[in-house]
């Protein structure tokens, strides 16, 4: 792998946003395709951050600054990715369910999904079931990701599952759930497709689901 891509990955892991931006431009100037810079530079760096986060080797601050650095790099790449016709690896809509305004965990999951090369539409907090469905339809999403922190709001996830199943999206999108009170047992009970206990595992599962669905 070229040195500059390794440098991009390494700078991203340290959260050095301005340097990531400059290195991405340098890689473009060297004639490296945008899709390669994305995959082997930026996303490779986020993969390392995600794995270390899962192993408790790095923590929320490191993930946040790495994600910010990645976004700076992607900003430089975006026009080239568009003109090269590079497709994203999948599309996910994400939000905290109705009645719940907690978004720290949801935001971490969003960053991790983006770090896997997925396009993520963040619907914010207090999101109604029909808003999840409408956004998934409008954006051609493969994934609907729901977060809840409260024991009082986790039943809203069932309403999202029901709303998806009552629409033409049934079977065409997968529903992922997570948040402190959620368990695998609960996900099974409400008919969600996937539960993950942390943000890094969620990103791995999301990518896997998208690959399965496009196969």
């Amino acid at each position: 792998m070229s040195e500059i891509l390794e440098e991009i990955s390494s700078l991203l892991q340290k959260g050095r946003a301005p340097k990531v931006k400059a290195a991405v431009q340098q890689a473009l100037d060297q004639g490296i395709p945008a899709s390669t810079i994305l995959q082997d530079g930026l996303l490779a760096g986020m993969d390392v951050v995600g794995a270390k986060f899962k192993n408790n080797e790095v923590f929320v601050p490191e993930v946040l600054v790495a994600a910010r650095a990645m976004n700076k790099g992607v900003e430089v790449l975006r026009p080239y990715l568009v003109s090269d016709g590079v497709e994203e690896k999948g599309v996910a809509v994400i939000g905290t369910v109705k009645g719940d305004m907690h978004d720290i965990g949801k935001n971490l999951v969003r960053m991790m999904l983006e770090g896997k090369g997925l396009r993520v539409i963040d619907l914010g907090v207090d999101v109604a079931p029909e808003t999840f469905v409408d956004a998934a339809r409008e954006n051609g999403a493969q994934l609907v990701c729901c977060s809840a922190l409260l024991t009082t709001t986790m039943p809203e996830m069932k309403n999202v599952v029901d709303a998806v199943n009552a629409s033409e999206l049934k079977g065409r999108v997968k529903i992922m759930v997570g948040g402190a009170p959620i368990t695998q047992e609960y996900a099974d009970e409400i008919g969600a497709d996937c539960y993950t206990p942390d943000a890094a595992t969620a990103a791995e599962a999301a990518l896997h689901l998208c690959e399965q669905m496009s196969a």
Partner: peptide, 12 residues
Amino acid sequence: GTQNGPFMSKDL
């Protein structure tokens, strides 16, 4: 702390 680990490294 978070559900899964500390919010930050021991060093920080």
